[in-house]
Simulated assay, not measured.
Amino acid sequence: MGIVDKIIAEQRERLREAGSDRWRIVSAQLAAKVAPMALRGALLAPRLGSVRGMPLIGRGVRIRNAHLIHTGKDLVVEDFAEIQGLSRDGIRFGDGVSIGSGTLIRPSSYYSRAIGVGLVMGNGSSLSPGCYIGCSGGVTIGDKSMLGPGVRLFAEDHVMSDPTVDVKSQGVEWSPITIGAGCWIASGVTITSGVTIGDGAVVAAGAVVTRDVPAGAVWGGIPARELKSRAPE
């Protein structure tokens, strides 16, 4: 069974189990949406560095340096997302990864033209609409982690140590961001360079994270601080 048939069958079964008679209409709607995404995926797949299973690609998606992008099974990239592959280690997606509409994945700087490190996303992880993943210093996201709408990751920072020189001319310094497995990064969160988020941690909406978050912790605020712990006592 192909990914298109799989998605339609899963949705049909959910509606049937719920006793809904709308499954026929929904199946037709899904087919109308998913089939063009599968066609775009089929056209993209030969250009990718490696691919397992056919990706679903939305309208207006921009892919650059596709030969440096490696995908697992069932990748979904929604409308008008942008993925730039140009990076030292490439862009690597596990199985079941989804990229929300309008999300930008940029591993290399427009200003310095330096080639950045890249991005690794684990199985079942997702980026909601409007995320910005600045992975020049390297970003790693573990399995089954969710990033909400408008989350921003910046794995680089501007150098500003010399007050006699404008900040732009001083360049940037890189430091990786790591988000563990099973995390929930809520909408509008900003994570700065060098930060590690431990497994199972939650970051509340709108927080600005400038230091490491322990596993199982719940953090929030500007700058973010611990609110409580999810870890078992």
Rank of each mutant, 00 (worst) to 15 (best):
V4Y: 02
K6R: 15
Q11G: 06
R12P: 01
R14I: 14
R14E: 15
R14Y: 14
L15V: 06
R16F: 10
E17W: 10
G19L: 05
D21M: 09
D21Y: 04
S27D: 12
S27N: 10
Q29C: 13
Q29M: 14
V34G: 03
P36D: 02
L39D: 15
R40D: 05
L44H: 08
P46D: 10
P46F: 10
R47Y: 14
R47S: 14
V51W: 04
G60N: 06
G60M: 08
N65S: 15
H70Q: 12
K73S: 15
L75P: 01
V77W: 01
A81P: 04
A81L: 00
E82S: 11
E82F: 10
S87F: 07
R88D: 09
G94Q: 00
V97N: 00
S98C: 14
I99W: 02
G100E: 02
S101N: 05
S109W: 10
Y110P: 04
Y110V: 12
Y111P: 04
S112W: 08
A114H: 14
I115Q: 13
G116I: 00
G116L: 00
V117C: 10
V120L: 11
M121C: 08
N123M: 11
S125A: 14
S126G: 15
S126A: 15
S128I: 06
P129W: 07
P129D: 11
I133Y: 01
I133L: 05
I133A: 07
G134W: 07
G134T: 06
C135M: 04
G138F: 03
T140H: 10
T140D: 08
T140W: 04
K144V: 12
K144F: 14
S145R: 05
S145A: 13
V151N: 03
V151M: 02
R152M: 12
F154L: 13
T164S: 14
T164Y: 11
K168N: 11
Q170T: 07
P176K: 08
I177L: 06
T178D: 02
I185H: 09
I185L: 01
A186K: 00
S187M: 12
S187P: 02
G188V: 07
V189M: 05
T190V: 12
T190L: 10
I191N: 03
T192W: 00
T192G: 01
V195Q: 04
T196H: 08
G198P: 02
G200S: 10
V208Y: 09
P214W: 02
A217F: 03
W219I: 00
W219P: 02
W219N: 07
G220P: 03
R225D: 11
E226N: 09
K228I: 03
R230P: 00
A231W: 09
